[in-house]
Design a protein around this nucleic acid. Structure first.
Lengths: 149, 149
DNA sequence: GCATTTTAGATAGCGCGCGATTAAATCGCA
DNA sequence: TGCGATTTAATCGCGCGCTATCTAAAATGC
């Protein structure tokens, strides 16, 4: 036989790894969103930024970054694309010229209405009970916290 | 008040979303791996390919892809980098010239020893009981399956 | 037996995510 | 007050992950 039998016992076995399950679930999730968000002309990370801004408009780049666990190297070009799409404006703070406030445009606010339909479509695609999903969400928050410490 | 109070009730609320929990946990996981895998000179997706090949050597590109849920557009350049690093070779099958078999080199096989230490380090970083992790893994497999269908 | 269709892999281009560096503004403190 | 340290954002380069497209080889159909 090949080495495949041993491997099923090994800690290196692909299918036993939480991390691969996490990785591939995230890719699958991302595919579902890609399809849904095409109608809003957003990528998933862009959608996340919009969620943050719909919750609280006018945040700084680093403020958004803290919320999403992303840094300016990721956010700056992403925000520029959203600005290019007319959904927001980036404006340097006059008090502290280092900071850039990100402010939704009319169009950016308006997009929220379209976005309201997204979560339900995703939950539908997930085919899970709300309870299951909430438990999973809390487990994942927990895991993220521990991994980041 | 701002719109932030409403938002906590909304389905659009960031912190209520499973998908954001999934997304950010995956990023955190990836960061942990990046640090660990630096010693092996591998990225996380490269590490996954090596896991697949350690389980069963000589698979085709699409065989690896089915295992990892990735397609040739992602794998081809990744495999070329691994080939460039001397860990494997890509060779066209003589039976079916469309297929490319991916075969580990001596060095590729050898790297497995170093990799044996990785899973334990990750579990340590996760600070979870094996039971918790197994449950989470199964939930994620489940979710992936449902999302992909 | 030859055209059609299907399959395997490669290629180009785009948008993240991040490590590393740089530039500018502000802060802290002697 | 002056000047080094810190903070904030931007920039660059690289490796995914994907869509769309392409090429070549193999399978299919009549």
């Amino acid at each position: 036989m090949t080495d495949s039998n041993d491997s099923q016992e090994s800690l290196l076995a692909l299918d036993r790894q939480v991390c691969f399950a996490l990785y591939s679930a995230q890719l699958a999730m991302s595919k579902v969103y890609r399809k849904l968000l095409r109608e809003l002309d957003l990528t998933y990370p862009q959608y996340l930024v919009m969620l943050v801004l719909w919750e609280q408009d006018g945040q700084t780049v680093s403020g958004i970054g803290e919320r999403l666990f992303l840094d300016s190297a990721t956010l700056t070009p992403l925000l520029k694309r959203l600005e290019g799409a007319g959904l927001l404006q980036r404006q340097r703070s006059r008090q502290d010229e280092r900071q850039v406030a990100v402010v939704l445009t009319e169009q950016g606010h308006k997009l929220r209405e379209k976005a309201e339909a997204v979560p339900e479509s995703v939950m539908c695609a997930a085919q899970c009970s709300p309870d299951e999903l909430e438990r999973l969400r809390d487990d994942l928050h927990n895991l993220r916290e521990r991994l980041a410490s």
